[in-house]
């Protein structure tokens, strides 16, 4: 029942000290995302560039295992483009009818290929730290896209007197300020096909847009449908109110 002691401590007090420490990091400033607001949508160019950043930088450490290549069709990628993107990776498949595993080129129905075979391998390659899957990352952090953007642009020199542990990096917005992920974005780190200059801010903006889409691929359809449904309900409710008035007026 050691576990229980821990839990109760967490529930009744200990967790408090933890959270007090963890909440030290300042709130990342809000960005003007084009996908904010009830009519917001993902900027298609940002998304394409964001995919480039993810594939060239983040994908060497982070999986995106809930997203399939075919899902890209939802944001305007053509079938041909998707096939090319998928075919760029080798995936292990099988067993075939000889009972053997084999590798083949990726297909649109495959999930984004994970960089590591298992969590242990991921830790082993990252100094014992686990790079989390990024499929729902903006839903999984307070502040969502603002936090992600803040994190990616928040690498700084530590303030005087702040001891950064061996293998850790100082980050302004990461809770506790010490993060195992080395600054992933560096000026000119990727070459954008559309010729946009790849500053850290630009790449952070783009990959955040891409990962926001990965977290909430239904968002655009959701908002569009929401607007229609709410309009219908509004009119219907107004009519029902009129009807109610009329029916009750007959009451003496």
């Amino acid at each position: 029942m050691i576990r229980f002691g821990l839990v109760l401590a967490a529930a009744l007090g200990l967790g408090v000290t933890l959270s007090a420490e963890a909440s030290e990091a300042p709130k990342a400033p809000a960005q003007a995302w084009p996908f904010n607001g009830p009519l917001g949508t993902y900027d298609r160019n940002d998304l394409r560039r964001g995919l480039t950043v993810y594939r060239n930088v983040c994908a060497s450490c982070h999986s995106l295992h809930l997203v399939s290549y075919r899902h890209l069709a939802g944001v305007g990628f053509t079938e041909e483009e998707i096939k090319t993107i998928a075919a760029a990776v080798e995936v292990e498949d099988g067993p075939n009818d000889q009972g053997e595993k084999f590798s083949r080129a990726g297909r649109p129905a495959d999930r984004f290929k994970s960089p590591f075979a298992n969590p242990q391998a991921a830790r082993a390659a990252n100094n014992g730290a686990f790079p989390p899957d990024l499929s729902v990352i903006t839903k999984a952090r307070k502040g969502g896209p603002d936090y992600l953007y803040g994190l990616l642009t928040g690498y700084k020199n530590p303030p005087a007197g702040f001891k950064v542990l061996e293998g850790m990096n100082y980050n302004e917005y990461f809770p506790g300020h010490q993060i195992a992920m080395p600054a992933p974005l560096n000026e000119g780190g990727v070459e954008y096909p559309d010729g946009t200059k790849s500053t850290v801010q630009q790449m952070a903006h783009d990959v955040t847009t891409f990962l926001s889409w990965a977290s909430e691929p239904e968002m655009e359809e959701r908002k569009r449908m929401g607007l229609k449904v709410l309009m219908v309900i509004f009119v219907l409710t107004a009519l029902l109110y009129g009807l109610k008035r009329q029916i009750w007026a007959a009451l003496h």
Binding site: I233, L236, T237, L240, Y241, L243, K244, I247, W248
Partner: peptide
């Protein structure tokens, strides 16, 4: 009718 309106 009153409940339907409320539901709306």
């Amino acid at each position: 009718i009153k409940d339907l309106f409320g539901l709306g």
